[in-house]
Design a protein around this nucleic acid. Structure first.
Lengths: 234, 234
DNA sequence: TAGTTTTATTATGTACGACATAATAATTAA
DNA sequence: TTAATTATTATGTCGTACATAATAAAACTA
């Protein structure tokens, strides 16, 4: 007799897994809003029929996902999850493998070229003034690496800010340590100096008087070095 | 007497917080590689002088960050963290607020325009063939929304794949449910049909015979509807 | 002796009970 | 009526105990 077709795959998930699912389900079904509180641990123990240990671990997971926040006495309350804050902890350059690091660095390039349209849609004269201030304070050329990095962050960070996309900005600040690390590590081949090079100053000019298309090309050129280094290290 | 300057800010972090930090520190200092195992819970209890409950919760956090993986008997072992798998659980459209949803949708547009350079660097004749196959199977025009979504995912997903950036691809698949949700929700103003419209077929053509610049413009045009809808809903 | 089965060991998973702690609610005092 | 005190409550931490699964050790069979 053939038994192979008679059984469904056994549920191999742990007790906590199941409770976790139940709880997420509960949150969605009840359409709970931010600030609403959920039942206490003891109540959940009773209604779910499991020990407090299990409930606590499941709640802990929700907390780490940023779905809830536990306060003493008050119990747990729903929070609007800041998706990337969860991520920032594992965004440790020393822990990620090199392939991932390069991937992430590359994503930065993709983002900064791709956001041209949005930049032009949302940039204000005040933004341009601020960019000019940042650029004016930049040294023409400095050997002080940390100093350069600081200006890099100031300028490019401002660009992300202009997009008005808070999630994108958070994403970028989360990636900052990675960028810095990749710059300093041997992951990129040594600097390849190209002839024509669009500076930050040049980018601001394009932002003021140019078009998204011009900006994309300018930004592409500006980042050309990074590109070459990424591609040539393959 | 003024006490305000005499005290450093009190460490308000919980016991688990401190243990968690200690453990992450341990992982980095020891330069542990993937597959290496860390001390058992009991050993950590002893060396850290805290209860197993606390150690377990700290370890759980590391696990949710994707830093370790616990196996029975063998204890916990270091793993190469898949950063985005951590995120995918909290990437629940029903839980995220509308601003964040719009932000994420916008990031998609940024990514797909910004990856032109990389696409041209890495695309192979085989990729183009596959894209053509996907396009050929598309209906010219269909009212079946789900069917359209499927083709959208197939085509654009393939683009991400061509970049060869595994992290980017993971990021995209994580965002898929969001895209779908935003499409279906009332978050976007109703479709604005533009005159000139670059189809998937057109994009493939540009990929085959064009340049990154041409592709960016084509993709921008292709996504124009989405752009207009996002911008007009402000 | 080699290979297989059985048993023992070990570390995590789950459960329960107890007390500490902090935030709130209820009560009392001024 | 307001301020101070006390009581209550739900989470935070601790310890113990046993279940379970994976491995290592031992016993056994061919």
């Amino acid at each position: 007799m053939d038994f192979t077709t008679q059984f469904n795959p056994v549920d191999t998930s742990s007790l906590v897994d199941r409770v976790e699912d139940k709880l997420v389900q509960l949150l969605q079904e009840k359409k709970l809003k931010v600030g609403d509180s959920i039942p206490t641990e003891l109540e959940l123990c009773n209604s779910l029929g499991v020990s407090r240990t299990v409930v606590r671990e499941a709640l802990l997971r929700l907390r780490l996902m940023g779905l809830i926040e536990s306060k003493k006495k008050k119990g747990a309350v729903i929070t609007s999850p800041d998706i990337f804050s969860v991520l920032s902890k594992s965004m440790n350059p020393h822990i990620l493998d090199q392939d991932t690091l390069r991937d992430i660095f590359e994503i930065r390039l993709v983002l900064e070229i791709g956001m041209a349209d949005i930049l032009f849609q949302r940039i204000t004269p005040k933004d341009i003034e601020e960019l000019k201030t940042i650029v004016d304070n930049e040294p023409d050329f400095s050997q002080d690496h940390l100093f350069n990095i600081e200006h890099e962050i100031a300028f490019h960070g401002k660009l992300y800010e202009i997009t008005g996309n808070a999630t994108l900005k958070k994403f970028q600040s989360m990636l900052l340590p990675i960028f810095d690390y990749v710059h300093n590590s041997g992951l990129l081949k040594k600097q390849i100096q190209l002839h024509k090079y669009v500076s930050h100053k040049g980018l601001v000019e394009v932002l003021e008087n140019g078009s998204p298309e011009l900006f994309r090309n300018a930004m592409r050129n500006h980042l050309e070095n990074h590109f070459s280094r990424l591609f040539s290290s393959e």
